[in-house]
Amino acid sequence: MVFKYTPAPMGGSSSNGNLVEFDHVKKAFGANVVLDDINLDIRNGEAIVIAGPSGSGKSTMLRCINGLETIDSGDLRFDGRSVAKAGKGIYQLRANMGMVFQSFNLFPHKTVLDNITLGPTEVKGLSEQEAKERATSLLERVGIPEKADSYPADLSGGQQQRVAIARALAMEPKLMLFDEPTSALDPEMIREVLDVMRDLAKSGMTMVVVTHEMGFAREVCDRIVFIDEGKIVEEGPPDEFFTNAQSQRAKDFVDKILHH
């Protein structure tokens, strides 16, 4: 027996063009305040990079967006609907956003193709055939159609991450979340993953990317959000951020990254 929901029409995001809205979001782990009054609107079609030192709350921000972490106060809306108050509706919200992890997290007991078709068949009710066609064309899009029948363990890190991106895209999400997608990769594989992400951004996908790849940030994203100790310290277009950061903390961060 497989649980399937009937897709309901999504909320009214079009009214203000925001796909994600952080509204005074607070989140603590015990006494450790990790997100401290975050306010941030992410527009439809926008690609933003979240940057900040280790432990500043970047991963937690992403995980709150798809409800993998719950927020303590404030509100967080995706596509006009509250993630915090979604209840069982959270599954449907998640089905409409993809997430890509630093450690790939492919399902090791399934082939590449089955990794990609599992979500569409189980959650979106696609037939095996439809899902397979979609998976095949996505594998072509990420450049590894020949790996359909391989197992994740037989793929390089870069290939695994591209499969992970394909798996997320197979759900036809409105939003893609990337949590340091290239941090676990050897240098020569970083590029192949960033290329896929660049194409995705160009195609108009709304993306929230946590990354230390400042070249990517500069070239691809519309806005950089710099957070430190759970607060948004600075945000703006990448050029401005790199050449003309306002706060000392952001300046130090840029210095450290660019002269590393």
């Binding site: 497989v2 649980f3 798809n66 993998l68 599954y91 449907q92 919200l93 998640r94 089905a95 409409n96 956003m97 993809g98 997430m99 992890f101 450690s103 997290n105 492919l106 399902f107 599992l118 979500g119 189980e122 959650v123 992970a164 798996r167 997320a168 759900m171 979340l177």
Partner: peptide
């Protein structure tokens, strides 16, 4: 835990 994160992020319920 990453497997569970990945699965939930696809919209799977706990049971799925």
């Amino acid at each position: 835990k990453g497997q569970i994160d990945a699965s939930l992020s696809l919209g799977f319920t706990y049971r799925q």
